[in-house]
Amino acid sequence: MTERFDLTDQPGAPLLRLFYTSSAIARLGARELALACEKRNREAGITGVLLRVDATYLQVIEGAPKAVAETFERICCDLRHRNLALLEIEPADERIFGDWSMAHVGDSESLTIALRDDLEDIRLLAGVNAHNTVLRMRQLLDAVRARDLEVRNCAA
């Protein structure tokens, strides 16, 4: 039992957001994992992000409390990762990752050096301030999206 997480300050909040990290034991990429759960997440109204920094996964899931609990239990039953640490769970009024049923960053070979640095920063920040880490992850997605747009525009 734990009192680390206080969920009572916003009773009846429509959403729950959960952030955990774990270490990978299988050579399973973030893309593979994110794609595997995308359909189910869309159906359950789950959004979020999955980062892989070397052998560390960092995942945020947000959605209706019941859906989040079910998704997290499924994650907890998966033994393809170890050292699962729940860093934050908080009620929320709105989504941070509403545009992504499960965004994934981390195993593309084309990561820019700036992106790599960002990922490393995020991993270090996770152990210090979970809430800010979640916000940084959103900024990272925005940066990736802007870059992709730029790439597409250049190509055009």
Partner: peptide, 19 residues
């Protein structure tokens, strides 16, 4: 090891966390 690992993970039940 797997048993200990999997049972050591948190249980999110309703809005409560059991460890």
């Amino acid at each position: 090891d797997r048993v200990i690992e999997i049972l050591g993970r948190p249980f999110l039940i309703g809005e409560q966390i059991a460890e």
